[in-house]
Protein backbone atom coordinates (compact mmCIF):
# COMPACT_ATOMS: atom_id res chain seq x y z
CA UNK A 1 0.00 0.00 0.00
CA UNK A 2 2.82 2.32 0.90
CA UNK A 3 4.46 1.57 -2.42
CA UNK A 4 1.29 2.36 -4.33
CA UNK A 5 1.03 5.67 -2.52
CA UNK A 6 4.65 6.47 -3.27
CA UNK A 7 4.14 5.68 -6.94
CA UNK A 8 1.07 7.87 -7.00
CA UNK A 9 3.08 10.66 -5.44
CA UNK A 10 5.70 10.34 -8.17
CA UNK A 11 3.07 10.35 -10.89
CA UNK A 12 1.50 13.50 -9.50
CA UNK A 13 4.91 15.15 -9.14
CA UNK A 14 5.63 14.41 -12.79
CA UNK A 15 2.24 15.72 -13.85
CA UNK A 16 2.81 18.84 -11.80
CA UNK A 17 6.26 19.31 -13.30
CA UNK A 18 4.94 18.99 -16.82
CA UNK A 19 2.15 21.39 -15.95
CA UNK A 20 4.35 23.99 -14.29
CA UNK A 21 7.38 24.06 -16.58
CA UNK A 22 5.73 25.38 -19.74
CA UNK A 23 4.02 28.05 -17.68
CA UNK A 24 7.19 29.17 -15.91
CA UNK A 25 9.65 29.35 -18.77
CA UNK A 26 9.74 32.64 -20.64
CA UNK A 27 9.39 32.10 -24.35
CA UNK A 28 7.18 29.04 -24.22
CA UNK A 29 3.69 29.39 -25.66
CA UNK A 30 2.04 28.96 -22.30
CA UNK A 31 4.06 31.62 -20.58
CA UNK A 32 1.04 33.74 -20.86
CA UNK A 33 1.37 36.82 -22.94
CA UNK A 34 -1.01 37.87 -25.64
CA UNK A 35 1.65 38.67 -28.20
CA UNK A 36 3.10 35.16 -27.90
CA UNK A 37 -0.30 33.67 -28.36
CA UNK A 38 -0.83 35.86 -31.36
CA UNK A 39 2.41 34.67 -32.98
CA UNK A 40 1.40 31.09 -32.35
CA UNK A 41 -2.00 31.76 -33.79
CA UNK A 42 -0.55 33.00 -37.04
CA UNK A 43 2.06 30.25 -37.22
CA UNK A 44 -0.33 27.33 -36.80
CA UNK A 45 -3.31 26.24 -38.87
CA UNK A 46 -6.57 27.38 -37.32
CA UNK A 47 -7.71 23.89 -36.45
CA UNK A 48 -4.52 22.99 -34.58
CA UNK A 49 -4.50 26.28 -32.78
CA UNK A 50 -8.07 25.85 -31.65
CA UNK A 51 -7.46 22.38 -30.30
CA UNK A 52 -4.37 23.70 -28.57
CA UNK A 53 -6.37 26.50 -27.00
CA UNK A 54 -9.14 24.19 -26.01
CA UNK A 55 -6.71 21.76 -24.42
CA UNK A 56 -4.62 24.21 -22.44
CA UNK A 57 -7.16 26.99 -22.00
CA UNK A 58 -4.47 29.64 -21.47
CA UNK A 59 -7.01 32.40 -20.85
CA UNK A 60 -8.51 30.76 -17.74
CA UNK A 61 -7.10 31.12 -14.21
CA UNK A 62 -4.21 28.79 -13.33
CA UNK A 63 -6.17 26.67 -10.85
CA UNK A 64 -8.83 26.00 -13.44
CA UNK A 65 -6.12 25.18 -15.99
CA UNK A 66 -4.69 22.64 -13.59
CA UNK A 67 -8.10 21.10 -13.08
CA UNK A 68 -8.64 20.81 -16.83
CA UNK A 69 -5.17 19.39 -17.26
CA UNK A 70 -5.66 16.71 -14.64
CA UNK A 71 -9.07 15.79 -16.01
CA UNK A 72 -7.54 15.37 -19.46
CA UNK A 73 -4.73 13.24 -18.10
CA UNK A 74 -7.15 10.93 -16.35
CA UNK A 75 -8.84 10.39 -19.69
CA UNK A 76 -5.43 9.75 -21.35
CA UNK A 77 -5.95 12.83 -23.45
CA UNK A 78 -2.52 14.31 -24.05
CA UNK A 79 -3.57 17.01 -26.47
CA UNK A 80 -2.90 17.21 -30.16
CA UNK A 81 0.50 17.43 -31.81
CA UNK A 82 1.42 20.56 -33.80
CA UNK A 83 3.60 18.66 -36.20
CA UNK A 84 1.63 15.52 -36.89
CA UNK A 85 -1.79 17.11 -36.34
CA UNK A 86 -2.92 13.97 -34.54
CA UNK A 87 -3.71 13.16 -30.91
CA UNK A 88 -0.42 12.81 -29.01
CA UNK A 89 -1.54 9.68 -27.17
CA UNK A 90 -2.19 7.94 -30.48
CA UNK A 91 1.21 8.89 -31.93
CA UNK A 92 3.11 7.74 -28.88
CA UNK A 93 1.15 4.49 -28.66
CA UNK A 94 2.14 3.75 -32.24
CA UNK A 95 5.84 4.24 -31.56
CA UNK A 96 6.41 2.98 -28.06
CA UNK A 97 6.55 -0.68 -29.08
CA UNK A 98 9.87 -0.25 -30.86
CA UNK A 99 11.41 1.48 -27.89
CA UNK A 100 10.20 -1.19 -25.47
CA UNK A 101 11.49 -3.88 -27.83
CA UNK A 102 14.98 -2.35 -27.89
CA UNK A 103 14.91 -1.74 -24.17
CA UNK A 104 13.94 -5.27 -23.11
CA UNK A 105 16.23 -7.04 -25.55
CA UNK A 106 19.25 -4.91 -24.71
CA UNK A 107 18.72 -5.06 -20.95
CA UNK A 108 18.24 -8.82 -21.05
CA UNK A 109 21.41 -9.34 -23.05
CA UNK A 110 23.40 -6.97 -20.83
CA UNK A 111 22.19 -8.69 -17.66
CA UNK A 112 22.82 -12.16 -19.01
CA UNK A 113 26.36 -11.13 -19.92
CA UNK A 114 27.10 -8.66 -17.15
CA UNK A 115 26.01 -10.59 -14.08
CA UNK A 116 28.02 -13.78 -14.83
CA UNK A 117 30.99 -11.63 -15.89
CA UNK A 118 30.89 -9.63 -12.69
CA UNK A 119 30.42 -12.77 -10.60
CA UNK A 120 33.35 -14.57 -12.20
CA UNK A 121 35.66 -11.58 -12.05
CA UNK A 122 34.82 -11.06 -8.40
CA UNK A 123 35.41 -14.75 -7.66
CA UNK A 124 38.80 -14.89 -9.34
CA UNK A 125 39.67 -11.45 -7.96
CA UNK A 126 42.62 -10.94 -10.29
CA UNK A 127 44.11 -7.77 -11.71
CA UNK A 128 42.28 -8.45 -14.96
CA UNK A 129 39.01 -7.37 -13.36
CA UNK A 130 40.40 -4.03 -12.25
CA UNK A 131 41.68 -3.19 -15.72
CA UNK A 132 38.46 -4.28 -17.33
CA UNK A 133 36.64 -2.14 -14.82
CA UNK A 134 38.56 1.05 -15.56
CA UNK A 135 38.27 0.47 -19.30
CA UNK A 136 34.52 0.04 -18.99
CA UNK A 137 34.29 3.16 -16.83
CA UNK A 138 35.98 5.22 -19.52
CA UNK A 139 33.66 3.79 -22.14
CA UNK A 140 30.69 4.60 -19.99
CA UNK A 141 31.45 8.32 -19.90
CA UNK A 142 31.30 8.80 -23.67
CA UNK A 143 27.95 10.21 -24.80
CA UNK A 144 25.75 7.48 -26.21
CA UNK A 145 24.94 9.25 -29.43
CA UNK A 146 28.64 9.76 -30.18
CA UNK A 147 29.23 6.03 -29.77
CA UNK A 148 26.26 5.37 -32.02
CA UNK A 149 27.54 7.73 -34.72
CA UNK A 150 30.98 6.12 -34.71
CA UNK A 151 29.45 2.65 -34.96
CA UNK A 152 27.14 3.71 -37.72
CA UNK A 153 30.07 5.18 -39.60
CA UNK A 154 32.16 2.04 -39.24
CA UNK A 155 29.66 -0.76 -39.70
CA UNK A 156 27.11 0.79 -42.02
CA UNK A 157 29.08 3.09 -44.26
CA UNK A 158 32.60 1.66 -44.22
CA UNK A 159 31.99 -2.09 -44.08
CA UNK A 160 28.33 -2.14 -45.22
CA UNK A 161 27.49 -4.88 -42.73
CA UNK A 162 24.21 -3.53 -41.43
CA UNK A 163 21.48 -1.22 -42.71
CA UNK A 164 22.05 2.31 -41.49
CA UNK A 165 18.53 3.43 -40.65
CA UNK A 166 15.00 2.40 -39.85
CA UNK A 167 13.58 -0.69 -38.18
CA UNK A 168 12.66 -2.54 -41.38
CA UNK A 169 13.00 -2.10 -45.12
CA UNK A 170 9.91 -0.58 -46.63
CA UNK A 171 7.91 -2.47 -49.18
CA UNK A 172 10.03 -5.51 -50.01
CA UNK A 173 8.92 -8.00 -47.40
CA UNK A 174 6.34 -10.46 -48.57
CA UNK A 175 6.28 -13.03 -45.82
CA UNK A 176 6.64 -13.10 -42.06
CA UNK A 177 9.99 -14.91 -42.02
CA UNK A 178 11.72 -12.41 -44.27
CA UNK A 179 10.18 -9.61 -42.32
CA UNK A 180 11.47 -10.94 -39.00
CA UNK A 181 14.96 -11.41 -40.42
CA UNK A 182 14.83 -7.89 -41.74
CA UNK A 183 13.82 -6.53 -38.34
CA UNK A 184 16.60 -8.45 -36.61
CA UNK A 185 19.14 -7.16 -39.13
CA UNK A 186 18.08 -3.59 -38.47
CA UNK A 187 18.13 -3.98 -34.72
CA UNK A 188 21.53 -5.68 -34.37
CA UNK A 189 23.62 -2.54 -34.36
CA UNK A 190 21.41 -0.45 -32.05
CA UNK A 191 21.29 -3.38 -29.63
CA UNK A 192 25.07 -3.86 -29.70
CA UNK A 193 25.56 -0.20 -28.82
CA UNK A 194 22.96 -0.34 -26.06
CA UNK A 195 24.58 -3.44 -24.62
CA UNK A 196 27.94 -1.66 -24.66
CA UNK A 197 26.37 1.19 -22.72
CA UNK A 198 24.32 -0.90 -20.29
CA UNK A 199 26.85 -3.64 -19.65
CA UNK A 200 29.50 -1.60 -17.72
CA UNK A 201 27.20 -0.45 -14.90
CA UNK A 202 25.67 -3.92 -14.49
CA UNK A 203 29.11 -5.52 -14.53
CA UNK A 204 30.54 -3.02 -12.03
CA UNK A 205 27.56 -3.39 -9.77
CA UNK A 206 27.71 -7.20 -9.74
CA UNK A 207 31.47 -7.10 -9.27
CA UNK A 208 31.24 -4.81 -6.26
CA UNK A 209 28.36 -6.62 -4.59
CA UNK A 210 29.81 -10.09 -5.18
CA UNK A 211 33.27 -9.01 -3.99
CA UNK A 212 31.67 -8.02 -0.72
CA UNK A 213 29.54 -11.16 -0.39
CA UNK A 214 32.57 -13.33 -1.15
CA UNK A 215 34.28 -12.05 2.01
CA UNK A 216 31.38 -13.05 4.25
CA UNK A 217 32.15 -15.65 6.93
CA UNK A 218 29.54 -18.10 5.67
CA UNK A 219 31.23 -18.27 2.26
CA UNK A 220 34.56 -18.90 3.94
CA UNK A 221 32.97 -21.60 6.07
CA UNK A 222 31.52 -23.23 2.97
CA UNK A 223 35.05 -23.49 1.60
CA UNK A 224 36.17 -25.34 4.72
CA UNK A 225 33.28 -27.75 4.35
CA UNK A 226 34.56 -28.62 0.88
CA UNK A 227 31.36 -27.56 -0.78
CA UNK A 228 31.93 -27.57 -4.51
CA UNK A 229 33.02 -24.34 -6.15
CA UNK A 230 30.06 -24.01 -8.47
CA UNK A 231 27.65 -24.54 -5.60
CA UNK A 232 29.38 -21.80 -3.60
CA UNK A 233 29.30 -19.55 -6.61
CA UNK A 234 25.59 -19.83 -7.24
CA UNK A 235 24.02 -20.83 -3.94
CA UNK A 236 26.22 -18.79 -1.62
CA UNK A 237 27.55 -15.80 -3.49
CA UNK A 238 25.08 -15.11 -6.27
CA UNK A 239 21.92 -15.90 -4.36
CA UNK A 240 22.86 -13.59 -1.52
CA UNK A 241 24.03 -10.83 -3.81
CA UNK A 242 20.96 -10.90 -5.99
CA UNK A 243 18.64 -8.66 -3.93
CA UNK A 244 21.18 -5.88 -3.86
CA UNK A 245 21.95 -6.30 -7.55
CA UNK A 246 18.24 -6.23 -8.37
CA UNK A 247 17.61 -3.15 -6.28
CA UNK A 248 20.18 -1.28 -8.33
CA UNK A 249 19.25 -2.88 -11.66
CA UNK A 250 16.12 -0.86 -11.35
CA UNK A 251 18.19 2.30 -11.82
CA UNK A 252 19.92 0.79 -14.85
CA UNK A 253 16.55 0.06 -16.38
CA UNK A 254 15.60 3.68 -16.00
CA UNK A 255 18.92 5.03 -17.26
CA UNK A 256 18.71 2.75 -20.27
CA UNK A 257 15.66 4.59 -21.56
CA UNK A 258 17.59 7.79 -22.27
CA UNK A 259 20.34 5.84 -24.04
CA UNK A 260 17.73 4.17 -26.20
CA UNK A 261 16.22 7.49 -27.19
CA UNK A 262 19.59 8.71 -28.55
CA UNK A 263 20.49 5.51 -30.33
CA UNK A 264 17.09 5.60 -32.00
CA UNK A 265 17.73 9.11 -33.25
CA UNK A 266 21.07 8.18 -34.82
CA UNK A 267 19.64 5.14 -36.55
CA UNK A 268 16.30 6.80 -37.37
CA UNK A 269 14.64 3.93 -35.54
CA UNK A 270 10.89 4.61 -35.51
CA UNK A 271 10.51 4.63 -31.71
CA UNK A 272 10.11 7.27 -29.05
CA UNK A 273 13.56 8.75 -29.71
CA UNK A 274 12.85 9.87 -33.24
CA UNK A 275 9.57 11.24 -31.99
CA UNK A 276 11.44 13.22 -29.35
CA UNK A 277 13.79 14.53 -32.01
CA UNK A 278 10.94 15.70 -34.22
CA UNK A 279 9.14 17.22 -31.25
CA UNK A 280 12.25 19.05 -30.05
CA UNK A 281 13.34 20.41 -33.41
CA UNK A 282 9.85 21.51 -34.46
CA UNK A 283 9.09 22.79 -30.95
CA UNK A 284 6.00 20.67 -30.77
CA UNK A 285 5.03 21.33 -27.15
CA UNK A 286 2.11 18.96 -26.70
CA UNK A 287 4.15 16.09 -28.12
CA UNK A 288 7.17 16.94 -25.92
CA UNK A 289 4.94 17.04 -22.90
CA UNK A 290 3.36 13.75 -23.85
CA UNK A 291 6.78 12.10 -24.16
CA UNK A 292 7.82 13.49 -20.80
CA UNK A 293 4.67 12.14 -19.17
CA UNK A 294 4.91 8.73 -20.80
CA UNK A 295 8.60 8.40 -19.88
CA UNK A 296 7.77 9.37 -16.34
CA UNK A 297 4.91 6.92 -16.17
CA UNK A 298 7.12 4.18 -17.56
CA UNK A 299 9.75 5.00 -14.93
CA UNK A 300 7.26 4.83 -12.10
CA UNK A 301 5.90 1.52 -13.36
CA UNK A 302 9.36 -0.03 -13.70
CA UNK A 303 10.24 1.21 -10.25
CA UNK A 304 7.09 -0.27 -8.79
CA UNK A 305 7.59 -3.65 -10.45
CA UNK A 306 11.19 -3.83 -9.26
CA UNK A 307 10.20 -3.01 -5.71
CA UNK A 308 7.71 -5.86 -5.80
CA UNK A 309 10.36 -8.25 -7.14
CA UNK A 310 12.86 -7.20 -4.50
CA UNK A 311 10.30 -7.76 -1.81
CA UNK A 312 9.68 -11.26 -3.17
CA UNK A 313 13.37 -12.11 -3.39
CA UNK A 314 14.28 -10.64 -0.05
CA UNK A 315 11.59 -9.66 2.45
CA UNK A 316 14.13 -7.71 4.48
CA UNK A 317 14.20 -4.84 2.01
Amino acid sequence: MKRVLKSLLYVSLIALLSFALPRLIPGSPLFISDSDLHVLNSALPAETFNSFKEYYAPDKPVIEQLAIYIRNLIHFDLGSSFYYKMPVAEIIAGRIGWTLFLSFVSISISSLLGIPMGLNTARSGGKMGKYLLSFLMALQSIPVFVLAIVFQLLFCFEFHLFPSSGAYTLGINVNAVDFSIDIIKHSVLPIIILVLVELPPIFTLTYNVCSRTKEEPYVEMAHYYNISDSLIKFKYVLKNSLPEILSKMNIQFLYAISGILFVEVVFSYPGGGTLLKVAASSRDYPLLQGILLVTGFYGVTVNFIFEMIIKKVNPRF
Binding site: Y10, L21, P26, G27, A280, Q289
Partner: peptide
Amino acid sequence: ELFIIVPEIVVLLFFAALSK
Protein backbone atom coordinates in the same frame (compact mmCIF):
# COMPACT_ATOMS: atom_id res chain seq x y z
CA GLU B 1 14.44 10.14 -6.66
CA LEU B 2 12.11 11.62 -9.21
CA PHE B 3 15.10 12.53 -11.34
CA ILE B 4 16.17 8.90 -11.34
CA ILE B 5 12.73 7.77 -12.40
CA VAL B 6 12.37 10.35 -15.16
CA PRO B 7 15.77 10.55 -16.82
CA GLU B 8 17.28 13.99 -16.25
CA ILE B 9 18.01 14.42 -19.90
CA VAL B 10 14.34 14.12 -20.87
CA VAL B 11 13.26 16.83 -18.43
CA LEU B 12 16.22 18.90 -19.49
CA LEU B 13 15.30 18.55 -23.16
CA PHE B 14 11.77 19.55 -22.33
CA PHE B 15 12.93 22.65 -20.49
CA ALA B 16 15.52 23.65 -23.08
CA ALA B 17 13.15 23.13 -25.99
CA LEU B 18 10.57 25.39 -24.39
CA SER B 19 12.90 28.23 -23.50
CA LYS B 20 14.50 30.71 -25.86
